[in-house]
Design a protein around this nucleic acid. Structure first.
Lengths: 216, 216
DNA sequence: GTATGTGAATGCTTTCACAGCT
DNA sequence: AGCTGTGAAAGCATTCACATAC
């Protein structure tokens, strides 16, 4: 399927997705270390905190550069900055919540949902009873105005928490209006074009696979 | 690390975790097919629905048996039953929700959270203002009585939605009282013994890794 | 002495491709 | 003819182990 083109252009070899997925965890560990008096850490310590091997941490970091000092380890503050930079967490990302039922409301209200770099700036729903309500300082708008809202707020990321039967079409609209990153809470795997990132939060799948191990 | 012992006992070779994690998705697809008039499907059709290759579906199923007919495909109803059986979704699993803040309440109230095989039977919190409240027919109990409640209701699975600073100790208690499967919503990776399954639901990690791709 | 960065080796997962059954 | 089930091959990811730097 995927054409194996020779690397004619200077494109650097792409970093495996699993590696990218681990970086936020490294950032968390470093944040934790950073508050205390620690200024230096190493792959063994980070590995213990995150339950991964030291070699994996070193290998992961090596995709992006050489951030450590041999014989010493890593500067906590420096490595933290580097990783945030790599993930783009120094920028500001504008986030919309689509669907303000119980779940959407919980998301908007949960402070942990806006770590450094993210701003919840808009919320929409199709229910007249919800439109106009103010939740956490954000006025719920009509989903009829989605296109306008996305443009006005320069939305980068959409969190979708609408009923399953509307999910695919809502996501189609978001993609059409230019949103390229979606966090989906409906228990389906919506189809999106290749240039759009989607992550599904689907706790029921996790429950259903755990029961296998309870039996076996 | 992992000792490669000869298979002296009749233990079947263990199935890769990635395979187990895909089975619930196969079940979803089959459920969808099952409601319509379709009685037979095949690996190509399932693959299209789930965006995986036909070969992967056939290989995954081959870990458990031979459920298809060459030249024809799979009986939807039969394969569905087989997969449910493999995951143990024909049994009844008793689930407790620990932590009845906004998130815990949302979980308890969301109907999609109790698919076939799961029963939300108890809820606890440490806050006196919440104890005694009835949510979705379940009375919130004091977390002081956790041990008793787990025994009385034969709890199999715990959904943990408590503040981050209490999460590890709550999980320690649950494990101590015999819970062997945990769905954790706090943004940490708690430590548990090897014989306990834990799945973390951590949407912020997903958000933080998506920004990488928005930049690159 | 100590810990990084990294090729090489190992281990795991996916895909191929075809014999065999319907 | 059509589609499964499965060894073998290919493709990825993790771990090892050591030269290199502090």
């Amino acid at each position: 399927m995927t054409q194996k083109l020779p690397q004619i252009f200077g494109t650097s070899d792409s970093v495996p997705e699993v590696v990218i997925a681990r970086l936020p965890q490294y950032i968390r560990a470093l944040n934790k270390l950073n508050t205390s008096t620690t200024t230096v850490t190493n792959s063994r310590q980070l590995g213990e905190m995150l339950q991964v091997t030291p070699a994996q941490i070193r290998k992961d970091l090596s995709y992006f550069g050489r951030f450590g000092k041999q014989g010493r380890g890593y500067s906590v503050a420096l490595l933290l900055e580097e990783l945030k930079h790599i993930l783009g967490l120094n920028s500001n990302w504008n986030v919309i919540v689509v669907g303000m039922g119980r779940l959407g409301t919980a998301i908007l209200s949960y402070p942990g949902f806006t770590p450094d770099g993210f701003r919840l700036v808009a919320a929409v729903d199709s229910d007249q009873n919800l439109i106009g309500q103010v939740i956490q300082g954000i006025t719920v708008k009509s989903s009829d105005d989605l296109s306008q809202i996305i443009r006005d707020h320069s939305i980068d990321i959409a969190i979708v928490a609408v009923p399953i039967e509307y999910t695919q079409s809502v996501i189609n609209s978001l993609v059409h209006y230019g949103v390229r990153a979606i966090l989906n809470y409906a228990p389906i795997s919506p189809h999106v074009p290749d240039d759009v990132r989607i992550q599904n939060i689907d706790p029921v799948l996790s429950l259903q696979s755990m029961t296998y191990y309870l039996n076996n």
